[in-house]
Design a protein around this nucleic acid. Structure first.
Lengths: 255, 255
DNA sequence: CGTCTAATTGAAGCATCTCAACATGCGTGG
DNA sequence: CCACGCATGTTGAGATGCTTCAATTAGACG
């Protein structure tokens, strides 16, 4: 996804996106940084639509998203799919497997993706040896929970129009915090079908509503690229307040 | 809520419901139990509809639900309310405030409720002094996250009928795990309006659908009491698998 | 140039909402 | 102990946001 923008030299260590994220929550000592950067890991590449974890799998490692984009989803009895989260680089995907054997949902790559596979024992050692880092990771899981709550609120109580606006606001803010946006544009790896599965809407209705947002001069999604036309007004329409993301930068307050 | 069933003598320590919950995740040493039971705390009573935490508040304590029932909710720009979680005794309501100053949503009591207010510093001391207990609490937050995900899936992709069935299944299972059900009956503190706000539906539609569930011989909600008529069939209709709750008992496997 | 996926558009249906009225139950004050 | 008031539950009728089905078009890729 950023391959074009970040040649090999730009990724000195696979944990860089994670460190960036944790530093947004507070300063890290160099010992703490080193402990994370020094975790044993194996890099694995996934193709677009590659399966990272299947529901019911019991991974014996923790997965760190290094580059690309993944999503979690469940499938209900009627066959419909609900996407429950999107993740951008720096995310630890299955810390819960430190406690829970099996994952109760699926994780797949949206685009070609690199994941660092870190043995559970190494993570356990880190948590034990560096309580500060354990607290930071816990903190991050609370942020993830806050994002879940916003999604629930949107799906439960917002119109299709506001839901799409909110998701694009959140995604753009998170991409920007991860250093992956340019101006008011960023990669947008979701098809309209996937957008529907994330927002509890049909593909057809996504299509119509997204075009309405375009006609209204708010945003454009085209060729896997998101362009925000009117950031202030989009935030109003979306009822979006980025505070819950706890990002360092005041989220592209410019414009 | 359980007042009638548990006279004074049945609540030797306000942390009993929490200890019960943690023991479901694995054995606790007596030192670990004592550390939790010995936490400094103040008990506070809330009336029905009492405000526990208002959005934007920055509590300097952690709230432990001892008796009663609370819910979390947000209000969107259009004025609609989304209930994001229900909590039964034993829940720590705002551990996130160890990391985050303000709460981004509201917490209110559904019924007369008792909460133990534990200074943040005492919790921090516990986490530092007893890493095992810290891990248990973290584990519990992952279970809470799993519950959130199920709610999101329901609101996004299930019919009103299945949504109500799922919520009642989950609530009954949790009440049973907390020792608060009798046979196939338990207290049910939600009005139809609140049910609607939890499930993203209107009161009117809740009313009609709940009556349909009754007519279909699945369940009855009346006078704040939930009665499950046909537990196996209700679980099928709800597409409910209690695994995610990680309860000790095989969830009233009886019928 | 053929193939495949994703996007687009139309038309019809329905699950759910809104508005509005009325019923029921319960706590409170007289 | 009754009567009022208020919250909750119930029901009907009409409106609508969104879905489903079914084509068709546009883009990407080998």
């Amino acid at each position: 996804m950023v391959a074009a923008k970040s040649p090999q030299t730009a990724a000195p260590n696979p944990t860089a996106p994670l460190l960036r994220k944790l530093e947004a929550l507070g300063p890290l000592s160099s010992a703490e940084k080193d402990a994370i950067a020094g975790l044993p890991m194996t890099l694995r590449r996934y193709a677009e639509k590659g399966v990272v974890v299947r529901q019911g799998d019991a991974p014996d490692a923790v997965y760190l998203l290094v580059d690309g984009c993944v999503f979690r989803f469940a499938v209900v009895a009627t066959g419909k799919r609900q996407i429950m989260a999107l993740h951008v680089p720096g995310a630890l995907l299955n810390l819960q497997n430190l406690f829970l054997k099996e994952l109760d949902h699926n994780i797949e790559a949206l685009i070609p993706t690199t994941i660092a596979i870190i043995p559970k024992e190494a993570i356990r050692g880190l948590l034990k040896g560096q309580p500060q880092n354990a607290m930071r990771l816990w903190h991050q899981t609370f942020i993830d929970a806050a994002i879940f709550r916003k999604w629930l609120v949107g799906v439960g109580r917002r119109s299709a129009y506001a839901r799409i606006a909110h998701l694009t606001c959140e995604f753009f803010a998170r991409m920007t915090a991860a250093g992956l946006s340019r101006g008011m544009t960023c990669d947008f790896p979701l098809t309209q079908g996937e957008l529907g599965d994330a927002l509890g809407l049909s593909t057809v209705h996504i299509n119509r509503t997204i075009k309405q947002l375009d006609r209204d001069g708010l945003l454009l999604v085209r060729a896997n690229l998101l362009t925000i036309y009117d950031w202030p007004r989009l935030q109003v329409v979306a009822d979006f307040d980025p505070a819950y993301l706890e990002l360092v930068e005041p989220t592209v307050a410019r414009q």
